[in-house]
Design a protein around this nucleic acid. Sequence first.
RNA 1: GCCCGCUUGGUGUAGAGGUUAUCAUGCAGGAUUGUCAUUCCUGCGACCCGGGUUCAAUUCCCGGAGUGGGCGCCA
Length: 479
Amino acid sequence: MLHVLHRNPPAMTTWVPTAYRTHTLGEIQTLGADLIDQTVTVAGFMEANRGKGAICFVDLRDGTGTTQIFLKADNIGPESLDVVQRMTRESTLQFTGTVSLKRPPKVKEGEPTPPPAYEVLATAVEVIARAEAPLPLGVTDTVNVELDTRLDNRFLDLRRAHVNAMFRLRGKVLQFGRQHLITEGFIETHTPKIVATATEGGTDLFPMQYFETPAYLNQSPQLFKQLCMSGGLERVFEIGPAFRAEKHDTYRHLNEFISFDIECSWANDDDVMGVLERMLHHIWKSVAEEEESQGLIATINAYRATQEEEAIEVIVPELPFPRMEYCDAIRIIKEKGGTIEWGDDIDAENSDLLAEDLPQFYFLPRWPMSLKPFYIHHVEGEQGSTDEQLSRGFDLNFGRDEMTSGGQREHRIEVLIDNLKKMELDPEEFEFYVAGFRHGVPPHAGWGLGVERILMKLTGAKNVRETVLFPRDRKRFCP
RNA sequence: GCCCGCUUGGUGUAGAGGUUAUCAUGCAGGAUUGUCAUUCCUGCGACCCGGGUUCAAUUCCCGGAGUGGGCGCCA
C-alpha cells in the first residue's frame, strides 16, 4: 500500500518547530500518545481529500510522514470546510487542531488490527499555495510514468514516496561511505573544478571561459588529489562533481556525475582495493541494518510491488571481494567463447560473460599498461601472458558494470615523464602536476567510484538518471 | 556517432485504411460514508509535425522532431 510511508525520523533527529509548524507529521505518529488533546499546527502537501458532505478527511504529507486531518463543519466552520473540499491535490496547507486517536479501520474477520494511529482534528486551515490541476504527473497515482516525463517535472516526481526514498538513501550512502573513510584516517578535501589543463589527455572536456583565458570543467580530481599526497596530507577523499563531454547515451552514463575519490600514501593497488571493499561492505551493511535505511528500501519495494517488479534485497557482500586478474579474465572469456585478444579492453558483451560467474562485486587487477593512463604505476618484470608490461591499475565491477577504476600511481618522475611522452602527451602542459614529483613524494594509490552507479546497484534502478536529482546527459541540461 | 524500436486525453495504455477511438488513472459535478486505494452515478479530455499513396490516413510509405533500447567510451 503506497500510503504506508516509512519516513518517520529516527529518534536521534531533532525537528525544531518552525514558523509554519509546531510538529512534523512524523512526530504526530511517533509521539501521538503524548500529544493527545494538545493543540498543534502542521503543514504539508494535500495528498488526497475524501468526503464531500459535512465531514472531510485530508491526507497531509510532509518530509517526515503522512497524517490524516479530520474536518467537521462543527469544528472548523462551513466556509473552511468547503475550501478544503474544493482544494486540489498537492496544494500546500497548514492546519491547526488537536491531536486525537484515529478510529481504527474496519478490518475483515481474521485480519490483525493495525497499531494505533493519530490524526489532527482541525479547527483552522490556511491555504499556503493552491496546486494547479491537472498535475503533470500524479504523485500517488498507480499508473506508470515515463522517465522523461518524470525528469521534466522532477519537483513533482520527487514527491512520490519511492523517488523521495531514493534520494534519502543516496544521502545515507554518502554518509556511510564518508563515515568509514574517516575511521580509516582519511580527511575530506575539495579540488578545483575549473582547470587550465586538460586533465588526462585533452579530449572530452567541457570548455569554458575563465575571464580572458580558455579553461575547462574538470573531468576528475585525479591530478590534484595526487598533489595532496606530495603535500603530505597522506590520506584524502573527495565527494564532488566530475564533468565529461562524452557523447554517450546509455543507462549508466552522465555528463555530470558525483565522483567518490580517495588517494592514499605509502600504499599500493592492493592496499586501496582493501579500503574500497571495506568501505562498500560498510555501506551495504549499514543500509541492511539501519532502521531508517531499511524503511527506505521498504518504500522502494512497496512501489516495485505495484509495478510487478521483484523486491530489491540488500545482500551484504562478503569480504574480501573476488579478484580476477586481467590475464585470467581474458582466458575465461575465451573459454566461454567470447571474442577477445590479450591487450583488448573488455567490452560489454564480454563483461556479461564474466558476470555469469561473478554477478556482484569483483576486482579486475593488473591490466596491461597500454590500456591505462600515464599516471598508473607499473612494476618492471610483471608481464602478462604475451610478455607485455602489466600495470598496477584495477577496476571494480558489479556484474557487468564498472563501478570504479583505480590503481597505484607512478611516483617516479622519470617514468612519469616517459609515460606522458609514450602516450603522446606533452609533459610541459602537465608541469603543474609533474612539479609535485620533483621534491620527494610518497608512493601512493587511489580510486574513483561513481556514486550513481553504486546507488543503481543498491536500489535496482535500471537507469542512472533515476539516482540523480537533475541529471545532465547528452540531451538534457534543464531543469 | 552507429544499429533497432516507439510517439493516441494531464499521466500511462488498447486498437483498426471508413461508424461515437478502448481501458485505467485524473479532472468536474452529484449521491453515500469516521473515511482510509471508499463505493456508486453523470460528465470532460487524445491519434507528434510535414509531405506522399488512397474515394478516404490517426492507421500504409518517405522525411523531420521527440523519445526508448543496444553498442562504442567510461565512473
